[in-house]
């Protein structure tokens, strides 16, 4: 297959100076006279005569200016014929001449004028329309790549639209308001060469009409109207109400609908709309009776025929809800009300007003708000207020004879609205008080063995009758007595000892009734007094003062502190360490074909040793077998570091089958090779055959479909010598491609020496079984390590291994972890004694996902012999990843 154009010429130019553009030659020239002839489009088909050939030399010339837009490619059919007989000596050869594009075409809009419309108030970035321009130049070429741009906007101002440069989509850039600008006119330019300065441009006009939505509320021309009508008459037009609306005139967004809010309960009136003027005509349709109503207050509302736009609808007809009007109300009552009388006493009614109707609110409930003395109770339905108890003008909640409380009206609709009204209760005084001991504060201590008590009549008679003070109780007899010190009979209490007492202060008024106030007296004991404790004595009406001071010791538990102090110390001790997990395998280029770059080993090893980026892909597994140098876990398992490898990466490097079994990302491989194949196919020059890529498998047992992967294989099918330059796998592939019978890969069935190492490890009390010496670890061959250990102390079952030498050259290390349990139980469980034989294989393993820490359990003595092999590996799926002929008990 001839896959390349033979030549190229530029359209619109004289290419003759480049002649000859191509030449063909048949090697039959050497033995016979040959004439060359061409046919096809551009020769003997339209456009005729573009190409001619020198029949003797085979040189092909171009003679005319060509237009790529007419003929992008010429296919010249070349013939070689015997000059004497005219017989063809060669099969006709297709020679293609590609016409190179020149930017000689202007972008053409599909319409000269675009018209579109979009609703006002729409979301930004809403698509308005799409402009399309085409360019006849070569597709997928910069000459035909069009960039769109808004050149101007009318009316000017802030840009209201944005034009997608690539696809010509016109979007809203700002919120449009029809009431501001009802239409826009844009000049749009399309420029090829992606808008570059060397591009060619064309323009079009783009008109955008802004569609009205009902986003304006109608209002009334006046806030009040009045009219008069005689009783017993009807009127077809009492008065007109003008509606004003900013939306588009004569549309439903503009047309008004009038309605009565209140006042027309009798149905005497109606309103019709004059569609021409948008006025409401108020008519009287039912006779009025002057004697029944001399005036009728009508409350009228207006809306539109069309529903309000969702963007504003919530703002229409705001519900004001209930409110107390006036905001406070005053009541009065006498404190002489008895307990019996208050049970039926109604203080008053305080209803909220529906501010939308002006009538008492109906859909509300009432509760008491601030009511410091809990004096009121209100009926939740009708706002009737009653007392809860006897009122007292002398209550400290009463200020200047007025008690203040609040009542709340809460609407029952959602959202609930609450209005607050204030109740001012003026309490009329009555003579109902005994003398009251004032707020005298006396310090009672050792040196002041008396306290003066002053009584005051709260009924406000400063010159009331004398008071009488009596000692009510004392814990010990006669520790206190009362001594009157002046004519006002103000007593003082004289102390005779320690302790507490109670004094009652009685007032003998005109009626010789005795009501009392009492207070407790308390004196500190001697020690407290001597230490200077002060006692404040405060007497008030029925107020007991208890000057006890109770120290409160806040004891703070130091548990937290202890806990914090004993916080986890990472890294202390050792234990099971979590194996870092990654989910995606990496593919290493050396794993595909060819030698492995040496530095990859270090890269990989370092990653592994870091403990943080270990991947679980099969490639890493296999690679890890060959790159144990420096391997160790983050928890201190690095004792394996520094030990040698088997030195046989080839033998343990995986085939692609292993890659699959290990979970290599086959999608990645597919993509990788597909891209490579494309890249090679598009390159101008053929690549040497040994430069192609190969992913190859021998189609062994259970090979997945497509195991012979993609290969970009380029070569001259007439020349087989390139096969000799290929490696065995490439050569096999080449032979497959050529349809040859291939020979099996020689190393598959070679009887490589096989070594089996079995290691068993016990938790405690067991000794490590000596490792089996390997006679010659350097020999090419299989190494299969099967290992079982347990931490549970259960009897160890003998490991079972099954070695199949067919699966070479591999090292398969399987591992079984039986119930890793104790953290400390593994301590020292693995001690590797001196290995007298230099050819040992030491297998260490990783524990997959134990949670806690264990102390370092693996100590490996210095193995001086370089031929030791330390195999460190990771088992991701111990069961499923094994081949069927491997059995693990």
């Amino acid at each position: 297959e001839w896959i390349k154009f033979a030549a190229a010429c530029r359209e619109g130019e004289d290419n003759s100076k480049r002649n000859p553009i191509a030449k063909v030659r048949s090697d039959c020239e050497e033995t016979q006279p040959i004439v060359y002839r061409i046919t096809g489009q551009g020769i003997d088909e339209s456009p005729i005569g573009v190409f001619i050939i020198n029949s003797r030399t085979g040189e092909i010339n171009i003679t005319k200016i060509v237009d790529r837009e007419l003929t992008p490619v010429f296919v010249i059919l070349c013939h070689a014929e015997n000059a004497a007989t005219g017989l063809a000596v060669e099969k006709p050869l297709e020679l293609r001449v590609r016409v190179l594009d020149v930017n000689d075409n202007i972008p053409i809009f599909s319409q000269t004028i675009y018209e579109g419309a979009i609703e006002e108030g729409g979301m930004e970035n809403t698509l308005v329309m799409k402009l399309v321009a085409t360019d006849a130049d070569e597709p997928n070429n910069l000459n035909s790549k069009i960039a769109y741009k808004i050149e101007s906007q009318e009316p000017a101002g802030a840009p209201m639209f944005i034009l997608n440069k690539q696809n010509g989509e016109l979007h809203i850039a700002n919120i449009l308001d029809r009431e501001q600008h009802s239409s826009f006119s844009l000049i749009v330019k399309a420029t090829d060469r992606d808008g570059g300065s060397d591009g060619i441009s064309s323009q079009c006009t783009c008109g955008v009409k802004v569609i009205d939505v009902n986003d304006n509320f109608p209002t009334l021309g006046q806030s009040s109207y009045s009219a008069s009508i005689s009783e017993n008459t009807l009127s077809s037009e009492m008065f007109r109400i003008q509606a004003i609306d900013a939306d588009e005139e004569f549309t439903d967004n503009w047309k008004a609908v009038f309605f009565f809010i209140s006042g027309n309960e009798g149905g005497f009136f109606d309103i019709v709309t004059d569609p021409a003027t948008n006025q409401g005509i108020v008519r009287c349709i039912k006779k009025l009776d002057y004697e029944q109503m001399q005036s009728v207050p009508l409350s009228i509302g207006v809306r539109n025929v069309a529903a309000f736009h969702h963007s504003v609808s919530s703002q229409y007809q705001v519900i004001e809800g209930p409110a107390f009007s006036p905001s406070s109300i005053s009541f009065s009552a006498s404190e002489s009300l008895t307990k019996q009388s208050i049970s039926t006493y109604i203080v008053g009614t305080y209803q909220a007003i529906d501010m939308d109707t002006g009538r008492p609110a109906t859909n509300v409930r009432y509760i008491m708000g601030r009511d410091p003395d809990a004096l009121f109770i209100i009926n939740p339905n009708n706002a009737e207020i009653r007392f809860t108890k006897i009122i007292d003008r002398e209550s400290h909640y009463v200020i200047n004879g007025v008690y203040t409380a609040e009542v709340l009206a809460i609407s029952r609709d959602f959202p609930q609205r609450t209005s607050t009204g204030t109740i001012l209760l003026t309490i009329q005084d009555a003579n109902d008080n005994c003398p009251l001991v004032t707020n005298e504060i006396r310090k009672v201590c050792m040196n002041t063995p008396s306290v003066v008590i002053i009584a005051k009549d709260l009924d406000a008679d400063p010159h009331g009758p004398p008071f009488k003070f009596v000692i009510v109780s004392q814990p010990r007899n006669h520790l206190w007595d009362i001594r009157y010190v002046n004519v006002c009979q103000t007593p003082f209490l004289h102390r005779h000892g320690w302790g507490w007492g109670r004094v009652r202060v009685c007032h003998v008024d005109h009626a010789h009734t005795s009501r009392g106030a009492s207070a407790s007296l308390s004196l500190p004991d001697q020690s407290e007094t001597e230490s200077g404790t002060k006692l404040f004595f405060k007497m008030h009406y029925l107020l007991f003062l208890s000057p006890l001071v109770i120290p409160i010791l806040m004891s703070r538990s130091d548990c937290c502190g202890n806990c914090l102090g004993a916080g986890t110390k990472h890294g202390v001790g050792a234990g099971f360490e979590t194996v870092p997990e990654c989910t995606e395998g990496n593919i290493h280029s050396w794993g595909i074909e060819g030698a492995q770059p040496e530095d990859r080993v270090n890269i990989y090893t370092n990653t592994y040793g870091g403990g943080g980026m270990v991947t679980s892909g099969g490639v890493e597994e296999i690679t890890g077998l060959g790159t144990v140098k420096g391997y160790g876990t983050a928890g201190g398992y690095g004792t394996a570091a520094g030990y040698g490898t088997t030195g046989r990466k080839e033998s343990i490097g995986g085939t692609i089958k292993e890659y699959r079994e290990g979970g290599v990302n086959m999608a990645f491989l597919d993509s990788y090779f597909s891209e490579k194949a494309f890249a090679y196919a598009d390159e101008d020059e053929g690549r040497p055959a040994n430069d192609c890529l190969l992913i190859y498998d021998h189609e062994g047992l259970d090979s997945p479909v497509g195991s012979i992967g993609c290969c970009s294989f380029i070569g001259d099918d007439l020349d087989d010598t390139y096969l000799d330059t290929l490696g065995p796998k490439f050569k096999t592939l080449a032979e497959i491609c050529l349809g040859r019978e291939i020979e099996p890969i020689p190393d598959v069935n070679l009887p490589w020496p096989t070594t089996v190492v079995t290691e068993n490890t016990y938790t405690t009390g067991s000794t490590l079984q000596p490792a089996m010496p390997i006679p010659d670890p350097v020999l090419q061959g299989n190494v299969i390590v099967t290992e079982t250990y347990t931490t549970s102390g259960s009897p160890l079952k003998p490991p079972t291994r099954n070695v199949d030498p067919l699966y070479s050259p591999n090292v398969v290390v399987t591992e079984r972890v039986v119930a890793p349990a104790s953290v400390t139980g593994l301590h020292g469980m693995l001690e590797i004694p001196d290995l007298p034989d230099g050819s040992n294989v030491v297998v260490t393993e990783r524990v997959i996902a134990p949670s806690s820490r264990i102390p370092p359990s693996l100590s490996i003595p210095d193995l001086a012999d370089a031929s030791n092999v330390v195999v460190t590996e990771r088992v991701i799926r111990p069961a499923s990843g094994l081949q069927s002929n491997f059995g693990i008990p």
Binding site: E1, W2, I3, K4, F5, A6, A7, A8, R18, P20, I21, A22, K23, V24, R25, S26, D27, C78, A80, E90, L93, L95, A677, A681, G686, S712, F713, I714, G715, D716, D717
Partner: peptide
């Protein structure tokens, strides 16, 4: 057949190039 075409570099210098059949 041995086809050759002339290719032009950026400097306008023509160069004959022989094409082989290529197989993918």
């Amino acid at each position: 057949f041995l086809p050759q075409v002339k290719e032009w570099d950026e400097n306008g210098v023509g160069r004959w190039k022989t094409f082989k059949r290529q197989k993918r």
